[in-house]
Every structure is written in structure tokens, then in C-alpha cells.
Design a protein around this nucleic acid. Structure first.
Lengths: 343, 343
DNA sequence: TATGCAAATGCAATCGTTTTCAATCAGAAA
DNA sequence: TTTCTGATTGAAAACGATTGCATTTGCATA
């Protein structure tokens, strides 16, 4: 099909001037006689002229586009992150190119390679849980293409990072359960080797240690997806055994809701028989009955801060030192963990 | 910062050949002597050469990028759509540029304008509920930039569309309630002038008419967001009045859950005292207690089909006639509407 | 009328590719 | 040795914009 763009050439021809003059007139350069300038601008508007983005990018070596590499889009956390990114990018006139890896390392690899061809000015990335090698990101460093990691990061690559303190958050969640009087605590987690998940476990353990509570290996469980079904699965039978937990820290809200379902099915009262806290602050947790206590994972803030950092780096013409921004999470105590008799 | 790309010029200089030869060698053109070809390819690999995307786009007049204009990202439906889009686009080597309008018409306008500068080969768009003028899309038609609307569409613009049959779906949902024995039906909807919402209402009314049930204006309500809070709000007091409904069709799952909360709070049994059905098939509906009956809105399919259509149009060099694809929705009957005593 | 100066405009290079067309080269045939 | 042929290679235009520099123009002054 004949997709024809209006170019400055067309305008120039139409008015019998050179393309340089048109270019200058359109950028409001005072070197051009006002009369010509106005005529050109008028015609440009009439012809609905839009400067060709590709030509501009090539000429100026800037695309005003940032890439976003994420494992998933259908995920409340990432959706929040995207919103944060969009808000900052939009205000600074940047566009966002999304590449979702669908939790596949191979796809992440291909996407990362693909984006290294000068089509983006910088990259925001969150690695998949399958990712264990990082050469594809090293190339960004080598080429000095600004790169900011967020959420799931790696120490292997020396670049800017924006994360939450998962250990501290895990600690906070667990200590909250302990303060509510829980003595026998369970941890239901996501993928064992996912660093965020691991940190949450470390926080859990740290809290137990601090309060001199025993750590029961049997009560520490890991899944692979962190989803609802898995929560059901992992906690199946958990409440029918002899020494059942009276407090559960689930590393995601969806896991937590799965656990709550089983607890309710086992005839336990939440939070009195068992207190439960999740992680993420998804909308569902507030609506579910009982409402689920949780840790706010600050997706929107992460997106905003990571993007601001990336754009700063893109616009900077000096060497900038790398920094890791740790965002403070907050505890949201709801019905699933607050024992009214306490305190 | 000195972001230096490796170009064919560098390779040419290094090997003392012309850039034409390098270009040909890299595209495996047999015109180039095998020996030279191999040397060039080897060096290119060593230097980690990636062809400059921008230059390629300019030269070939194709960006292998499609634009996506949506009201929101943080929305299970749109997230599903994006996943469908990504899957198809990825397989055909296309990238996706996301522009979210955040439900603001002004932002939609600016984004649509912005994307008209040749940076995308085609556009997928879903209009906001604020959108009532469409000149910004007409420009796409004029320029022959392929455009596919999905979900929220307008008849004003003659282009490809991918939608579900909201009227039929609304009819199906309502008839299901009637089959379960409901006699007094309520409709809780989203924005009154949003066409999808309006169609769902028409379907509701059609079902009432078919089954000779009375339509109670008082029981037809509209909100603005379609969210949970609004569901709570709109249905507040609904179950305390004299003639309370024994069946509610909510135009979104979140509205439906709000309604369920109020029904439960009023001491009603779901589904026996009041049967409830939502719309969208969001994950929460399956988990909530009781689980929410709903209509599957087929976000993933919509994304896939719309993208396939767009790419077909982009790749076609002939005039193609416009078509509207209507995707069949399905009823998902769960606990909130199935009266076991029935049938 | 010639000169000078400032204002206005145009030329051409550039960004990194691809591709058409022309040029070069080697070896075979004359 | 010349000429021809096919195989290689290179030069240059093109994509659509910006911009440094050179050129043209108009007008006032000498």
C-alpha cells in the first residue's frame, strides 16, 4: 500500500524554497524571514506535516525511547511498575517499548539482544526467575547503553538498581506475626532460587532468631510460581497435622490467599487460630474475607524511580557512578493477622 | 557519554574493503567472494556488530514496530490483551510500543498524534471512555497507516475492529439468571455512555423482554469506574429496600464482588436469596467466596486476533476491505448464580 | 554606478544502511 | 599481446531530517 509521508521536501517544492529553509522555518529559526517562515508553517499545518521520527533519530543519535524488559505483563506488580514508568516517561517525552519474556530466559535473551541495535536510548530490566547468566546485559555496559535493573536484580552486573529491601520486609512481616502472639511460624515461598524470595525467607529467619523462636524446617516450603493454586497445594494438610502453625508468612498475596482457603477449610479461625500475612499488596487481598495483611511492594514507586534514574543517565554527558536505590516498604495490617484481644 | 556503535564503516575500514561489500557480505550475498564474506562475518561477530535499527528503518521505510494505545495497563483485561499482542508480534519479529492514556482523552490525543510520525508501522487502539471525537484516528486512515480497533470501538471510523458481542454476552448472562429462577433483576453498570457497557445493558433488557419480566428503572444503575468501590456504593441499600432484586447482573467482576459484599452484609444467601453474575472473568472471581459467575471477555484472544489482523494489513500491498471480527464469549457459571435446587 | 553589509537563502555533509550501476580484475580465448 | 567474459568490488544515491558554511539578495551608502 502506498503509505506516503509528507516530508519537508514536499513543502519545499510546493513553495519553491530549499529544504534547509523549510527545516529552519519549522524550528522557528529567526534566520528565516518572518514572511517565509509563516508561509511554511501554514503550509506544513495544512499538509499535516509530522517530522519523520526515524530520520530524526538517525540524525541526532537519540530515539527518545526506552526499552522495558519484564517477565510478565499480566501481573499486578508489573502493571503497577509500568504505570510508574509511563507516567515519568510521558512527562519527559519518552516512549516505552515493552518486551515481555513470558518468564522464558531464551526469550529474554533474544529481546535483550534485539534491543541493542540502537533503537532505544536505555533499558529498564527485571530478570526472569530462570535467568542465571548475564552476558546479554554486560553488552549494555560495554556499549555504555544506560541500564537500570529493578525488583529482580543481580550483583553480577554493575549498574543502577532499584529494589525493595526484601529481607527487611520479610522480617517486618514475620515480626508482626510474632507480635500478634504467634509461636509456630510457617513460611510459604515462591521459587527457591529467586533472589527476592530468598531474601524474604532470610528476613523470616532473622525474626525468628531475634525472638528466640524455633525454626521448623517442615514449615518452610517453596513453590515455583507463587500463584494461588500453589498456595493451596503447598499448604494442603498443613493445618491437619499435629503441630500446626499458628502464623503463616506467605511470600506473595496469592499464596497467602491459598493458605487462607485451606485454613478456613480446616475449620480454623483467622487470625485467632492462625494469623496470616502475604506480600505484594494486591487489590484482591483487601477485598477477600478476611482481608489479607500484607507488605506493600511499591510497584508504582519502583517504576517511577527507576525511570527517573534511567532518564537522568541518558541525558547526562558525564560519567555517573552506579547506585542502588532501596525503597522502603510498608506493613499493611489487616484482618488476617490482627488479633483484637492482643495489645 | 560516548555511546559508540560499531558500524559497517568500522568493519570496512578494518578490512580495507568498501562498505558495500561489508553490507553484502553480512546479508550473505553470493556476489561476495566466499573468503571475503567469511572474513567479514567473522570480524562482525568479533566486534559484536548489530545493524543500526534506525538506519534500517529509514532506508526501508519500515520500523517493525506496532503501537498500542490503551486506556490502562493496570487492568487484568488489558494485561491479557497485551499478552496476546506480544505473543503474535514476537513471533513475527515485531516490537510493541505502548502508549497508555491513563483514561485521559487529552493524553490519548497526544499519543495518537505522536505515533503518527512514522515510528510505527501500524496501530492497535482501544479508546477511552472520555473519547467522543475521532479526528486523531482519521489521520491514520488518510495516511493509510493500518489501524485496528479493539474492545472499545467507534462506528465513526471505518477500519478493522475486533470486539466481543457485548449485547449477546449481556443477554446470555441475564438469561442465565432467569433460568436460575430470578424474577426481579438488577443491572449494575459502568459508565453510561461507554459503548460496551451500553450494549451489555441492551442485552440485559432484551433478556427481560424475552422472558416477560418487568424492567425496574430503579434497579438499573450506572457508575463511572466499574471498580469494586463503586460496586459497594451503587448497591448500598439495594438489599434493604422493599422490593429487592433476587438477581443481579454486574457489568464487571469488580462491581459484582462489591454487590456480593453488600448482599452478604445484608444477611442474604448467595445464590439462593440473590443470584449474582459479573463480567470479565478476572482471577479474583474464581477465588472469592462464593465464586463469581461471569462472562469470559477473551482478552488474550482479542489481542492475538487484532495483532494478526494488523500485521496482515501491514504486510499486504493491496487494498484490503475492512472487517469487524466479533469474538464469541462464554458463560462461566459458578457458585454465585447456580442454585442447586434448580434444574 | 559601484561598494559594502546584513539579512535571507541554498548547498552539501552527515547519521548508518541498502542497492543500482559502473569499474576493476583475473584468466581464457583469440 | 590484445580482447572478452564473468566474478568481485567500489562509488554514489537514497531514506528524511539538521546544520555549518557559502552564496545570493536587497538596500543604503559612497
Amino acid at each position: 500500500m502506498n503509505r506516503e509521508q509528507v516530508t519537508i521536501k514536499h513543502i519545499a517544492k510546493e513553495l519553491g524554497v530549499s529544504i534547509s529553509t523549510v527545516s529552519r522555518a519549522l524550528s522557528n529559526n529567526p534566520l528565516v524571514k518572518q514572511q517565509t517562515r509563516e508561509a511554511i508553517q501554514k503550509l506544513a499545518k495544512e499538509m499535516n506535516y509530522h517530522p519523520n521520527f526515524t530520520a530524526l533519530s538517525l540524525r541526532q543519535g537519540k530515539t527518545r525511547t526506552i526499552g522495558l524488559l519484564i517477565p510478565q505483563v499480566v501481573h499486578e506488580f508489573f502493571a503497577q511498575v509500568i504505570r510508574g514508568i509511563e507516567d515519568v516517561a510521558y512527562n519527559q517525552g519518552y516512549n516505552v517499548l515493552i518486551s515481555s519474556s513470558n518468564e522464558s530466559f531464551e526469550r529474554e535473551l533474544r529481546n535483550a539482544e534485539e534491543l541493542l541495535n540502537g533503537r532505544i536510548d536505555g533499558l529498564l530490566a527485571c530478570i526472569t526467575k530462570e535467568t542465571h547468566t548475564f552476558e546479554h546485559f554486560e553488552e549494555y555496559i560495554n556499549r555504555q547503553v544506560p541500564l537500570v535493573f529493578f525488583d529482580c536484580v543481580t550483583d553480577t552486573i554493575n549498574t543502577d538498581k532499584v529494589v525493595i529491601d526484601d529481607l527487611d520486609a520479610g522480617f517486618m512481616a514475620t515480626e508482626h506475626l510474632i507480635e500478634q502472639g504467634c509461636k509456630t511460624l510457617a513460611f510459604i515461598g515462591g521459587p527457591k532460587d529467586l533472589n527476592t524470595n530468598h531474601e524474604r525467607l532470610l528476613g523470616f529467619q532473622k525474626a525468628l532468631k531475634k525472638h528466640n523462636l524455633e525454626e521448623t524446617p517442615r514449615l518452610i516450603m517453596h513453590g515455583t510460581s507463587g500463584k494461588y493454586d500453589e498456595g493451596l497445594d503447598l499448604s494442603k494438610g498443613l493445618f491437619n497435622q499435629e503441630k500446626k502453625p499458628d502464623g503463616v508468612f506467605a511470600a506473595t498475596d496469592m499464596l497467602g490467599i491459598g493458605v487462607m482457603k485451606n485454613a478456613k477449610a480446616a475449620g480454623l479461625k483467622i487470625p485467632d487460630d492462625v494469623a496470616i500475612i502475604g506480600f505484594s499488596n494486591w487489590e484482591i487481598g483487601e477485598i477477600f474475607e478476611p482481608s489479607l495483611s500484607t507488605i506493600d511492594q511499591k510497584g508504582y514507586d519502583i517504576g517511577k524511580i527507576a525511570t527517573a534514574r534511567l532518564l537522568e543517565r541518558i541525558d547526562s554527558d558525564q560519567e555517573m557512578s552506579m547506585m542502588t536505590e532501596v525503597i522502603k516498604t510498608t506493613l499493611i495490617a489487616r484482618a488476617s493477622s490482627q488479633r483484637k484481644t492482643q495489645k
